[in-house]
Amino acid sequence: MADPRDPLAAVWAATEAPARDLAFELAVEEAIARRRLALDAVTLAAVVAVAGLIAWLAGPRLAVFAEALAAPFAQSGSLIVVSMVLAGLAVWWLQAPPEPER
């Protein structure tokens, strides 16, 4: 680029940045990492705020819905719990590795 025959070559030579500059590249990388972190924090805060707002607004309705959903199982609740515990034990017993033969 700096043609020695060019009378303006001295201007370009005096103002040319280095071809590689690790300090500059690292500074850019660090600034972008900071920006990314800030964006992630803002996004997370926004998601949490929206989720909290939804839960706060819809909470009473959801509670009514959950109660309505659970009503048919209320009578047989203890039976279901016992069945699930037994099923869990059966799965655990079936999946246990066999004892080594002596």
């Binding site: 103002t15 040319e16 590249e25 850019v28």
Partner: peptide, 22 residues
């Protein structure tokens, strides 16, 4: 891809900085 943007910075930092200095 972070490495891709780093490569762009490495490739064009001289042009951008020289332009701004001028």
């Amino acid at each position: 891809a972070r490495a891709a943007f780093q490569a762009l910075v490495a490739r064009h930092q001289q042009a951008v900085r020289s332009f701004l200095r001028r």
